[in-house]
Structure formats: structure tokens, C-alpha cells
Design a binder for these strands. Structure first.
Length: 857
RNA sequence: GGGCGUUUAGCUCAGCUGGGAGAGCAUCUGUUUGACGUACAGAAGGUCAUAGGUUCGAUCCCUAUAGCGCCCACCA
């Protein structure tokens, strides 16, 4: 057997493992040998094919992968599906940019040629993403990889569209939408990001037609004044009594505007008089409908003013704002300019200021569809959120959401499957493509999220209900995603799933937080505080990054990424590496594992098994709750402290002193526990555990073929276990004592040990070795046999020193006794506290008193 | 305006059903102990944001307050 290298090198360990696993089909779901196992299914939130995976992807995929590997070793047939998103707007913007840099305008080459370019882009970037996935150590099923724009998805999307269209849930209508003048497309409400921007509030004079007086009207957007068709005030506003129906002069163009009263206007805000621009403000639009006002669009798609704006036509909207203010000022109609901070909507993608605009678009009528999800939640509680608080956020959104604008004025995406008959003008929605000689297809494409919403079922083969993948793995068992795409994705998957498959598309949703920098700031290019996961991997390895990400925080909470944590993880892995190396050095060449007989186990063996079994239980409990950080913490502490610091050290004594026959037991225990520790750690750090595993005697082809330890029998003599705990405490006390008294750590002390002694020699050796002290056992078989916890009596050769120490100890004991007595004298405590708590306290007091007696006799 | 989260050691964070406050890093002291100096042994460091309440008992439950952060809505 090849030996483990002297020191842990993540480069060597991680090289080639993904290939090995993949070649051996460990990542594939629905292999014949697994078909009788219970299933567990997840998909990765499809990353955009725009390119680079960031630390946010890393935490998301790491969580999913840990669960996938855990489930796999727990005996499930796991589907962890690889997929990517065509990311309409984002990708199109990138491709356009690339073409521009080559001096190509997309309109010159046309739609078809542009799409060819986009597909080329997709192929290149998909390759790169796959490489990154593999670097992150993901165990996705690549053989079933899907893309939101692949053939199957086209069919699914068109099927969904047509059904919603036929059922009246999709309609085309003219409404105020959010327009991105840079990308020249409509956006949905949630693609608009609001920020508190500095701005100006302009107060203008609106003269009455007869010039008898003027009204003050304030606006933040003077450039829209060409689109004004009224000035409004609240009907209860005394200031404007009797003015309704009169006309005022629009100071930007001299045209007359009616004054009208509408409840919408807030008397407290601004001047109480509001200009109404129906084509460029959703509220104004509603007012216009109520009062049948004309609706005038005054802007082009690129954010320049259109021909309704006289001399300003063709001017950029912000230039126009300045120009109009200047003109009004020159006309002496400017009253004042106030600096304000107000909420301004920006495009999520281009970051430009979004222009609300009247536009004919396709919409999904959300209320009935959303309500179906809410109803299902209430009836069956189908989707379980973790952490639970996100369930309310999820539901509130569904209850309040508006219609969803799904059409985008782009080329890259699912083209809307609606056609106009060129001859008859008839509108036809069709799943299959219609002949373009006879029919003209709607030029727009669908919002990317429209297709990714179908992912849970469409990626599994829907609408083919007989697809084996769909039959076996739908609905998904778990969806893992960050809270920032609950509205974009989780909600929409939910309503589409419920509508088309009559069930929630996933049973459970695990929501994790965002990764921030070590000071909790959002990572951003301008701050230069971004963490590139692949740089971290290069330096510390994937295993370390994974472990750090899994233990860095708690579910639902943002993680402040601290490189210290990765270093800690790396040191931890090094620790296991070396512990394993030590063990492999020990084991005889012909070692064959035999389950050690219980009655052959030493007190130390029993002790470690006991700790091991209980830690297994805690780990499994937490893994099942997806409390990965908690599970990893248990594992970390067990490996560092119980296994390495304590048990490995114990074995050094017995291995030195015992016969080969006895040592065989120790070898078996060591082997057994180490092997299972590798299995427990495997989900978090798959590479190093696989590497070590393959060096173990009797290793199978891969650690993948091991099973997660479960159903362990933990029936040991608690007295023996307490004894070892007591020994550990004793060593601590002695070391502590030496340090506090400026004695060298290996200074010899004579120690009297009080308690019922079983493995006399072992204990003696142990204490001599780890406490460097001679042991004298006093009161062998004294009256109580459980007093292992407290037994320390130090005897140094120096009598004075000794009395100091005893005095200190007595003081301590008296304090403890006082505390315990006080609690126990409280009748309410004795009456009302749980009996085991009371008993615990009594036992403690008992021990303290007994120890004190020893010193005082 | 509505909702949510958070406040624990110098820093980054754990703390699962209420029963003597934990880790890693940083700091200080010591150590060629049978794998590991990427280590080992130890020390120091906390009014668990504040004020009330419930309870025999509160970091944990309730109420208020404050700081920090997020989400939704949105006023021209």
C-alpha cells in the first residue's frame, strides 16, 4: 500500500478526483443499482451563462453538494441536476458589448446572425462554468444537464404559455411598465431596484388662464411636462376651492391644462397641487382613466424626447430636464428649487434610471395563480421553509403581487409563441412553430424567469408525464437558494408548479444568506472587496473553502467571509491528514478489520466509542435538519479533541505496553472510528477524505461506496466512561497547577488519587505519561464509587507549597458548597425544578463535601 | 408607512426543548511528549445592547427602548 505523503497538499489531493468520481458514475441518478433506493432530488439554481461564478454561487452549491453527498452515503438515489440559465437581458447585453467592441451593430447583422453569436457565447461560457463547478467539487449529475433555452425547454415554455393564454391568465395589454432606456426593454416590477438618490424638487408657477393668479406645482421630473394633461388637487383641499374645471397654463409649452380634483392627491405633500402625466406615471395613469384625460407619451425607447416635445425632441431626458427648467426660469415661472433625497428606481441590469412608460406588453394575471399557492400552503402546508420566517415573506408576496410583465424587447430568449395571420390578421398562440410565410411571430421574447420558473418539472422532462426522471424525482425534495431570489424564482416556480402539476414543485426550501466581506459590507467592484472563490481554492483548496463556507454562519443569515476561517479549516484538514498517517503507520501490513468484541474493550476504547456514538447521533440529527454548520462543529470538536488529543494519546500507552493480541483491539477501534470519521467528513471535504480513504486497508473502490454510520449501539458502562472523563480532568488540573505555580510541565509530582480503581496500571501509566507524575492510589475502594469527578490531592515534596495548594482548593470547595447549598435550600427549587436537575445538584454537593472532608481530616 | 432580522470575548461567529457562557483568530506564557510547529500544553479576556416583566431559576420566553442591517410599499 502506498503511504500517505508526509504533509497535506491540497493540490495533489484534489487533482483528478472529480474525473474519477464521474467516470465511476457516482454523480449519476437513477443508475440501475440504485433504483430500489429511496430518492432524493435537487437542482442547482441555474447560473447565468454570462460567465463567472462568484462566492455567492460557491456557498449555494457547497450547501447543496454537502447535502447531496450526505444523502448519497445515507442510501438515497440522489439527483443533483446540473443546469444553466440563458439569462436573457444579461447575456444579450454581454454579447452586444462584445459585438460592439468588434465594431458590429446588432441591427446591421440582424436577429438570426445575432442569435448565432449568442449561442456561440453560450457554448464558450457554459464550458467555463462547468470547469468552475468542478473546481468547487460539485457532485452534480452532468449527464442530465439542462439549459433554460434547450429544445425541451422550448416545448415546455410554449406549452405553459399556450395553456395560460387559453385559460386567460396571459394577456396582452397597454399599461404603465418599467422601461429600461439603455437596454431598451420592458422590465418587471421586481427588476427595478430603488435607491435613495439626491434630487431636486422644482416649484413652478402654473398661471390660471386669465392670469389672475398662479398655483404652485412641484415636480422632480420637469422633462415629463410635455406629457401633462391636467393639474390635480385633493377635493377636500380648501386652498383650491372653486378652481375645479378651470384651466392653468403649462409653463413649459404654454398649453392649457384642466384643474381637477382627485382623492389620490395628498394634501400634506408638496404644494397640494400635482401635475398629472398619465403616460409616464402609474398613479397618474389611473387618474387619467378616472377622468378620461388624454394620454401623451413623450419619450422614445432610448430615453430621448420624442416629437411631442417641440424643440426638445431628440434631446436626452436629463438634458431636457435642465433645458426646461432653464426655460421656465427665464420666463420667471420658477419659484424655487429644493434639494431632496428621494427614492429612484434603477434597472437591476443596466442601473440606469427606469422610465415608467405606457407600453403594450404581455402580462401574467397573477392573483388567481398566486392564490392557489397560498391556498395549498394553508390546506396542506406543502412547502416547508427553513428558516421558517421566510414562509411569511413568501406568502405575503403572493398575496400582494401585481400582474407580471413577461415580454422583453430582446432577441435572446424564448420567443413569444403568438402569431398573426398575415392574411386575416387573426392572432394564434401555438406550441409548434408556425410557417412564417403565412404567420408573423411576435418579435418579443419572454422574461428569463418565465422559463426558469419551470425548471423543477421541465428539467425533469415535463410536459412528458411519462419521463422516468419526472416520475421518479418530481417534486423536488429540496430547493437551496439565497433569499435575494425568493421573489424572482421561488415564488414563480411555486405558482407554475402548482398550476401545471397540482403540487408544489419542491417540498422544502432552504434559504441561505449572502456572502459579505469580513466587515459585513456587500462585495462590490468599486470597493474592491470581492472574494474570488477560485483564488481561495488555489491557495487553500476546495475542501477548506467548502468547510469554511459550511461553518461560517447559520441558515438564513448573511455570512461575513473571513479568510481566517478557511485557514482554520485547512489546519483542521491537516490535522486529520496527520492523524490518518499516524494510524496507517501503526497498522500491521496484513491488517484485516474485525469488529472488536465488547468485553475486550479497554476503558479508553469504551470512552471513545461512547463519545463517537453520541457525536454521530448529533451530527446526523443536524444533517437531517440541514444545520450543516452545527453538524460540522460537532465533527470538528470530536476529531480535534476526543479523537486526536485524547484517544490517539491513550492508545500510545496501550500500544507500547500490551501484547499483540490486545493491540489488535486497539487497531480495530482506531481503524473503525477513523474510517467512519472520513465518511462523516466526506460531504464537507470530499477530496481529502477520498484520498485518505483509498489508503486505508480494505478500502473499497471509493469512499462513495461506504455508508453513513447509523443505528449505533451505545450501551457502555457509564462508570468506566466517567472514570476516563475524570482522568482527563485530573491531567488538566495537574497541568494547570504546574503552570500556575511556575513548575515545569514535566516536573514530577506525587499525586494521591481518590476513587474506585479498575484498570490500575493503565491509569497509572496514563497519569504518569500525561501529567508527568507519580501516582499513589489512596483509599482504594472507598465508600463511594462514583466520585471520579473530584479526587485531586496534590502532594509535592515541599510541605509549605502543598498547604498553599490545599488552602486554595478548600477555598474553592467552600464557595461551591455555599452555592449548592443555597440553591438546594430554596424550597421552590426543590419542589418545582425537574427532579434530575435537583439530583444533579445534590450529587455535586455531596462530592464537594466529601472532598472537603478529606482535606480537613 | 408596513414587515423582518440582528446586538454574546479585541475580531469573525456558534450556543439546538430555560438549569453554572463556547470555538477559531489575535494576545500572553510554556513545550524537540512516539502523526501533526499547519502542532502541543496552559493563561487572560464577557453586566450575553438597555429597562421592565414571567419563572424557584432568563443569553434563551414576553413587553418596551436604542443601535446596526435587510425586505416590501411609495408622494408628485
Amino acid at each position: 500500500m502506498e503511504e500517505l505523503a508526509k504533509s497535506y497538499s491540497h493540490e495533489n489531493v484534489e487533482k483528478g478526483k472529480e474525473d474519477f468520481w464521474e467516470k465511476n458514475h457516482y454523480f449519476e441518478a437513477m443508475r440501475e443499482e440504485n433504483i430500489n433506493k429511496p430518492r432524493f432530488s435537487m437542482i442547482v439554481p441555474p447560473p447565468n451563462v454570462t460567465g463567472i461564478l462568484h462566492i455567492g454561487h460557491a456557498i449555494n452549491t457547497t450547501i447543496i453538494d454537502i447535502i447531496a453527498r450526505y444523502k448519497k452515503l445515507s442510501g438515497f438515489d440522489v439527483l443533483f441536476l446540473a443546469d444553466m440559465d440563458h439569462a436573457g437581458i444579461a447575456t444579450q447585453a454581454k454579447v452586444e458589448e462584445k459585438l460592439r467592441s468588434e465594431g458590429i451593430n446588432k441591427y446591421d447583422i440582424g436577429r438570426e446572425a445575432f442569435l448565432k453569436e449568442a449561442w456561440k457565447w453560450k457554448e464558450e461560457h457554459a464550458d467555463y462554468i462547468t470547469k468552475q463547478w468542478r473546481a468547487l467539487g460539485l457532485s452534480m449529475d452532468y449527464s442530465k444537464e439542462r439549459f433554460t433555452l434547450d429544445e425541451g425547454m422550448q416545448k415546455a415554455v410554449n406549452t405553459v404559455f399556450k395553456r395560460l393564454y387559453d385559460e386567460g391568465y396571459i394577456y396582452r395589454g397597454e399599461r404603465i411598465i418599467n422601461w429600461d432606456p439603455v437596454l431598451k426593454t420592458a422590465l418587471s416590477d421586481i427588476e427595478v431596484v430603488y435607491s435613495q438618490d439626491n434630487g431636486q424638487f422644482y416649484y413652478f408657477k402654473y398661471w390660471l388662464e386669465d392670469h389672475s393668479r398662479y398655483l404652485e406645482v412641484a415636480t422632480t421630473r420637469p422633462e415629463t411636462m410635455f406629457g401633462d394633461t391636467a393639474v390635480c388637487f385633493n377635493p377636500n383641499d380648501e386652498r383650491f376651492k372653486g378652481l375645479e374645471g378651470k384651466m392653468v397654463i403649462n409653463p413649459c409649452n404654454g398649453e392649457l391644462l384642466p384643474l381637477l380634483a382627485d382623492r389620490y392627491v395628498d394634501m400634506e405633500f408638496g404644494t397640494g397641487a400635482m401635475k398629472c402625466t398619465p403616460a409616464h406615471d402609474p398613479n397618474d395613469y389611473k387618474i387619467a382613466l378616472r377622468h378620461k384625460l388624454p394620454i401623451i407619451k413623450i419619450m422614445n425607447d432610448d430615453g430621448t424626447m420624442n416629437d411631442k416635445c417641440g424643440i426638445y425632441s431628440g434631446m436626452d431626458r436629463f438634458e431636457c430636464r435642465k433645458a426646461i427648467v432653464k426655460k421656465i426660469q427665464d420666463d420667471d415661472n420658477l419659484i424655487k428649487i429644493e434639494n431632496i433625497v428621494h427614492n429612484v428606481g434603477h434597472s437591476e441590469r443596466s442601473h440606469t434610471v427606469v422610465e415608467p412608460m405606457l407600453s403594450k406588453q404581455w402580462f401574467v394575471k397573477m392573483q388567481p395563480l398566486a392564490q392557489a399557492v397560498v391556498d395549498l400552503q394553508h390546506e396542506a402546508g406543502q412547502i416547508e421553509f427553513f428558516p421558517n420566517r421566510f414562509a411569511n415573506i413568501f406568502e405575503n408576496w403572493l398575496k400582494n403581487t401585481d400582474d407580471w410583465c413577461i415580454s422583453r424587447q430582446l432577441w435572446w430568449g424564448h420567443r413569444i409563441p403568438v402569431y398573426t395571420n398575415k392574411m386575416t390578421g387573426e392572432i394564434v398562440c401555438s406550441v409548434d412553430k408556425l410557417d412564417n410565410k403565412q404567420f408573423e411571430q411576435d418579435p418579443d421574447v419572454l422574461d428569463t424567469w418565465f422559463s426558469s420558473a419551470l425548471a423543477p418539472f421541465a428539467f425533469l422532462g415535463w410536459p412528458d408525464l411519462n419521463n422516468p426522471l419526472y416520475k421518479r424525482f418530481y417534486p423536488l425534495d429540496l430547493m437551496v437558494t439565497a433569499y435575494d431570489i425568493i421573489f424572482f424564482w421561488v415564488e414563480r416556480m411555486a405558482f407554475q408548479g402548482v398550476h401545471f402539476t397540482n403540487t408544489a414543485p419542491f417540498k422544502k426550501v432552504y434559504i441561505h444568506g449572502l456572502v459579505r466581506d469580513s466587515q459585513g459590507r456587500k462585495m462590490s467592484k468599486s470597493l474592491g472587496n470581492g472574494i474570488d472563490p477560485f483564488e481561495v481554492i488555489q491557495k487553500y483548496g476546495t475542501d477548506s473553502l467548502r468547510f469554511a463556507l459550511a461553518t461560517g454562519g447559520t441558515p438564513g443569515m448573511d455570512v461575513n467571509f473571513n479568510i481566517n476561517r478557511v485557514e482554520k479549516a485547512h489546519n483542521f484538514l491537516n490535522k486529520i491528514w496527520n492523524a490518518s498517517r499516524y494510524l496507517l503507520m501503526l497498522l500491521p501490513n496484513d491488517f484485516k478489520y474485525e469488529k472488536p468484541l465488547k468485553n475486550k474493550l479497554s476503558i479508553f476504547d469504551q470512552w471513545i466509542y461512547n463519545k463517537y456514538y453520541s457525536v454521530c447521533k448529533s451530527i446526523k440529527n443536524n444533517m437531517d435538519k440541514y444545520e450543516l454548520g452545527q453538524a460540522a462543529e460537532y465533527l470538528y470538536n470530536f476529531i480535534y479533541n476526543d479523537f486526536c488529543s485524547q484517544y490517539l494519546e491513550f492508545t500510545k500507552i496501550s500500544l507500547k505496553n500490551n501484547s499483540y493480541e490486545q493491540n489488535k483491539v486497539t487497531y480495530n477501534v482506531l481503524y473503525d472510528i477513523l474510517k467512519n470519521l472520513l465518511v462523516l467528513l466526506f460531504p464537507f471535504a470530499p477530496f481529502i477524505t477520498e484520498e485518505i480513504y483509498q489508503h486505508l486497508p480494505q478500502a473499497k473502490n471509493s469512499i462513495y461506496e461506504e455508508t453513513y454510520p447509523i443505528d449505533l449501539d451505545n450501551n457502555f458502562d457509564s462508570t468506566d466512561i466517567q472514570l476516563v472523563d475524570a482522568l482527563i480532568d485530573a491531567v488538566k488540573l495537574i497541568r494547570n497547577f504546574k503552570a500556575n505555580n511556575s513548575l515545569s510541565p514535566n516536573a514530577h509530582l506525587r499525586i494521591e488519587f481518590i476513587g474506585d480503581i479498575k484498570d490500575y496500571n493503565l491509569i497509572k501509566d496514563y497519569l504518569e505519561r500525561f501529567a508527568f507524575s507519580e501516582i499513589k492510589f489512596a483509599d482504594h475502594n472507598i465508600e463511594n464509587s462514583v466520585s471520579f469527578k473530584v479526587f485531586s490531592l496534590f502532594i509535592s515534596s515541599d510541605e509549605n507549597e502543598m498547604s498553599d495548594i490545599i488552602a486554595k482548593r478548600i477555598e474553592e470547595l467552600e464557595k461551591e458548597i455555599a452555592r449548592s447549598t443555597k440553591i438546594l435550600q430554596n424550597q421552590n427549587f426543590v419542589k418545582k425544578a425537574k427532579p434530575e436537575i435537583v439530583q444533579k445538584e445534590k450529587n455535586k454537593l455531596d462530592l464537594f463535601v466529601k472532598e472537603l472532608k478529606k482535606y480537613k481530616k
